[in-house]
Design a protein around this nucleic acid. Structure first.
Length: 674
DNA sequence: ATAGGGTTAG
């Protein structure tokens, strides 16, 4: 593991510090102290001691010793000691000592972190006055679920339901949704027969729905004396988020029976749910139902739901078409629509359109200053290789940056392979109080791999593990690709073992990455071994092995696999075609290439531009000149024509040719030469 | 105070 030249202290990992002399000394004190506390707590104390010294005095004496020996340069150890004493003050009902300790904490300036704060608060809750407890709670800068639970529990015991609910809303606002503390409060309130008004019930309904406890939510909903459209929509939304559209629709019927008419929010909820899972036809049905229906007329939310649904389900060009239709209808996009469309531009490498939309944003104050829009723009400029004048400018513009902003700007530098800039940004971010998450590391791993620097990608993977961030399947696939890229078979094998030990080798993405890793490290036999070891072989696995064989120069094997695949009743798809065509190209196997071409036409796989490009490549690789292209479908010929024009007129390299309905609309995306 | 659409990895 390389040592960074820049300061790099993202976490206080104290595990490795235990051998440090000062720390060891402190640990010694800590252990001694723990023993005493354990002894004080013990229900059967040692007779000789307990007879002559009362428990409280013993406690005081030893606490004083510990406080004097606290090593203030080791915050972690201090926190542990303070917390331990506080816990025991609580158990021994020693208010005075706890207050003294709080005073000591203020004097020494120990950081009231989430953990210590929650311990101190719990002490105040149990032993001190409500006012003092509340004062502490309000002044605490970091609150975790335990802190909220303590203070909510306090008010619920006092029977101050208004305060319980108001704290509940505050907790939800801060993004802390804790099912257990909510359920405790709820159980407590129902147990003493407190019914609560509809406001209270609505707050609980919200909580149970967000925790996915449909059973409790449903019971609560049925107990309501009266329901309004908002509460019905909450139920519909709950089922939609569970992807249970049938029940969601049943609630729509039910609300009609109760005399509540579904509104635009009801339809938008269902619409967006369907669009998010790619059920566009049904979504469109609801959309057209709303169309021309006065109050239910699709609004910006309805349009945006359809656009993002298409975007997130692999149809970005369709998302763009819908966006254009929306603009033509005179509907003004807002920040939500814009950020989604910028993401489309990023994915399709639509540089001109992206810049046009950026221009539109600059003219509108609301869009220009929006965090999410600017985050999307950072990524857009990063993917179009414009770091300093694009991504960085938007990053600097953001007043209150969030983790996404930092992740995006770092990825921008990673795209260019700037390792030092990335490390500097990690350090700067830490100073701002943000910790890197799994997306941070995955972003760095994949970008550095794409740049061709698998070594740095591996370095960040190690750093990620060292900091205790658990790798997920994306991290694993990424790091396997990095191993292939840097031909690091040893590390690749280690990762393979890791996946087996942790039971994550079953994920499709990981399996195909394993196959690609071994072939990339020139061990095609191992790729075959992984494949043969699979119990079920889906088309993705076949494609992975075919691609691996082709790339390793074993084209004959790739063609064999295609035959074998058909015999095993696996249906080849367009990805299969691309791989086998590449193999044919390398083998100059024109006869097989033509056969595959026939297969492509028979199965209608020629609508993908990638397949067409592979066909062009195959005929070219087999030494066919232009006349031979007559056997290529009409759309490919057009692409070639456009490609030639492109090179001739603009003198640029073609990176991607996109078309939805080729005869009608061809879109060529170009990149200036580097 | 309560319901619908958003950005970063793959």
């Amino acid at each position: 593991m390389a040592v960074y030249s820049t300061p790099f202290t993202l976490h206080h990992n104290n595990l490795c510090l235990q051998n440090h002399p000062i720390v060891a000394l402190n640990l010694h004190h800590h252990r001694r102290f723990s023993t005493i506390i354990k002894y004080v707590n013990s229900s059967k104390p040692n007779h000789t001691t307990s007879i002559c010294v009362p428990e409280h005095e013993l406690m005081l004496m030893n606490v004083a010793t510990v406080l004097h020996s606290l090593d203030l340069t080791n915050p972690d150890q201090c926190v542990q000691s303070y917390a331990l004493i506080l816990r025991n003050c609580r158990k021994l009902h020693n208010l005075q000592l706890g207050l003294q300790l709080h005073g000591h904490m203020i004097v020494t300036g120990v950081d009231l972190c989430e953990f210590l704060g929650s311990q101190l608060l719990e002490f105040y809750c149990k032993l001190s006055t409500v006012d003092d407890t509340r004062k502490l709670f309000d002044e605490m800068s970091e609150r975790n679920v335990f802190s909220w639970t303590s203070v909510i529990g306090l008010y619920s015991e006092l029977g101050d339901y208004e305060e319980v609910i108001s704290l509940f809303y505050m907790m939800n606002d801060q993004g802390l949704r804790d099912y257990k503390s909510g359920k405790d409060v709820y159980d407590y309130m129902t147990s003493i027969g407190f019914e609560g008004n509809n406001y209270v019930k609505r707050a609980f309904l919200d909580m149970f729905l967000k925790c996915g406890r449909m059973d409790i939510a449903r019971r609560l909903f049925e107990q309501m004396d009266s329901v309004d459209v908002v509460m019905c929509n909450m139920m519909v939304s709950g089922y939609v988020s569970k992807r249970d559209f049938e029940r969601a629709l049943r609630y729509v019927d039910q609300m009609r029976l109760k005399g509540v008419m579904p509104d635009r929010v009801t339809y938008n909820t269902i619409l967006s749910g369907l669009a998010q899972v790619g059920r566009f036809k049904e979504a469109a049905k609801y959309f057209s139902k709303m169309d021309g229906f006065g109050e239910l007329e699709p609004n910006i939310v309805s349009w945006t739901a359809i656009i993002t649904g298409n975007m997130q389900n692999g149809s970005p060009s369709r998302a763009l078409n819908i966006f254009r239709k929306m603009i033509n209808r005179g509907i003004k996009p807002n920040s939500t629509t814009i950020s989604s469309v910028i993401s489309v531009c990023t994915n399709l490498c639509l540089e001109r359109l992206g810049k046009e939309i950026h221009g539109y944003c600059i003219k509108t104050e609301e869009l220009d200053s929006n965090l999410v829009v600017n985050n999307a723009l950072i990524d857009f400029y990063s993917k179009s290789q414009n770091v300093n004048n694009g991504a960085r400018k938007n990053f600097n513009k953001i007043q209150h940056k969030d983790l996404v902003s930092w992740n995006s700007i770092r990825a921008a530098y990673a795209t260019k392979g700037c390792r030092d800039d990335v490390i500097k940004l990690l350090y700067e971010m830490e100073l701002q109080g943000f910790l890197p998450d799994v997306i941070t590391w995955n972003g760095l791993i994949t970008r550095f791999t794409q740049y061709g620097d698998g070594k740095t990608a591996l370095e960040f993977f190690a750093k990620m593990c060292q900091l205790g961030v658990s790798p997920n399947t994306t991290s694993i696939s990424g790091i396997l690709t990095a191993c292939a890229q840097s031909k690091n078979l040893k590390m690749g094998k280690e990762i393979h073992n890791y996946t087996i030990r942790n039971g994550i080798e079953m994920a499709t993405g990981v399996r195909s990455a394993l196959i690609a890793m071994y072939s990339g490290c020139d061990d095609l036999e191992a790729s075959y071994a992984v494949f043969n070891g699979l119990l079920t072989k889906d088309v993705v696995m076949w494609n992975s092995l075919i691609a691996a064989s082709g790339k390793s120069g074993f084209g004959v094997g790739a063609l064999d696999l295609l035959r074998e695949m058909k015999l095993n009743n696996a249906q080849p798809d367009s990805v299969t075609m691309i791989s086998v065509l590449t193999a044919c190209s390398k083998l100059a196997a024109l006869r097989q290439g033509r056969e595959i071409h026939q297969y492509i036409i028979r199965h209608g796989l020629d609508s993908s531009n990638f397949v067409c490009n592979a066909l062009i490549n195959m005929y070219g690789g087999c030494g066919c000149d232009n006349p031979q292209f007559t056997c290529i479908p009409y759309n490919s010929l057009m692409i070639i024509k456009v490609l030639d024009d492109c090179v001739e007129i603009f003198n640029c390299s073609l990176i991607s040719v996109l078309y939805s309905h080729v005869r009608v609309n061809i879109l060529v995306v170009c990149r200036k030469p580097d």
